[in-house]
Design a protein around this nucleic acid. Structure first.
Lengths: 157, 157
DNA sequence: TTCAACCTTGATATATTGTATCATTCTCAG
DNA sequence: CTGAGAATGATACAATATATCAAGGTTGAA
């Protein structure tokens, strides 16, 4: 995972490739989220953006922009806690998977995004099939405690 | 999964064993949720309860009662869609697992609750460990389409 | 029995998260 | 330039959830 600017640049490139625009507002939002280094709620992100911008924007804009960023896999929404996080693979060269897994710390904003191997997914797909379900979204979220919070006895700093 | 009354009775027994009370209100809420046959939002459940009860209750009560029911594994909260569902294993004789998996239909209230085998979980636990995370909650939610909605082309009836 | 402690529920207010809608501004191809 | 479509602003509101204090009920011990 490169520097903040490297990731923004990679996001620019990916948008250009897809024929969509990473406007100034969108870049500001993505950049604030990347620099947060973890998961933020929409309104937390809004506050951060508005604090460092000359012209503040309404809540509606954050949601619209987050929708855009999600639809281009630059941001993920964590349903466990209604927070948003910058994709960890914006500037990776490898293929992006639709199957992301997140380890979410319940005591701090830390989130780890990984990609499980295919066999575990295939296992679940078959189990679903037996129950008559065809899976669409396979984003998995696990809650727990990150190393730092585990060592602190679960106390945020 | 037995009849509605069988499940309520089983819930009574489990509460009694644990030395807690399944009060009238709690029984009403659980029973409404069981009879719904799928996932409901807190306010949908509130509406159903209040429609069939002589004395209506405030929203706060639903949340309190749902907290109680969740803490005794009689109800689960689906974080994917902020809905609640009666545990499918209230009146099962087998051991209750803290690891539940849900297949959630995105087009109707259908939800299937299963228990994956231990190996898949163990796989994820190790992956988390490598990332410095110790998992606590392992409820997994998969979104997709149930058989009925798949056959209807995703159209709810 | 009666009182006190505790648990449960009611009532009300408010916080948090997210969407609907219409107006305004921006951008860019023709 | 200009007009169509995209993006944003502004405002209202819906949906989800929590905080807090008061009132009612249960239960066990004096």
């Amino acid at each position: 995972m490169g520097s903040s600017t490297a990731r923004i640049e990679a996001a620019e490139n990916r948008c250009a490739q897809q024929g969509v625009k990473l406007t100034e507002r969108r870049r500001e939002v993505l950049s604030a989220l990347i620099e947060a280094g973890g998961a933020l709620s929409a309104y937390e992100l809004l506050d951060r953006c508005n604090k460092r911008l000359s012209k503040s924007m309404p809540a509606m804009s954050i949601y619209r922009i987050l929708d855009f960023l999600q639809s281009h896999s630059l941001v993920h929404k964590l349903k466990s806690n209604n927070k948003f996080i910058a994709c960890a693979h914006i500037d990776c060269d490898h293929q992006h998977f639709s199957r992301s897994q997140f380890f979410i710390c319940s005591d701090c904003p830390a989130v780890e995004e990984i990609n499980i191997d295919t066999s575990a997914y295939e296992f679940m797909r078959k189990a679903a099939e037996q129950a008559g379900f065809s899976l669409s979204n396979t984003q998995l979220e696990f809650t727990g405690s990150c190393q730092r919070c585990t060592n602190n006895g679960g106390q945020p700093e």
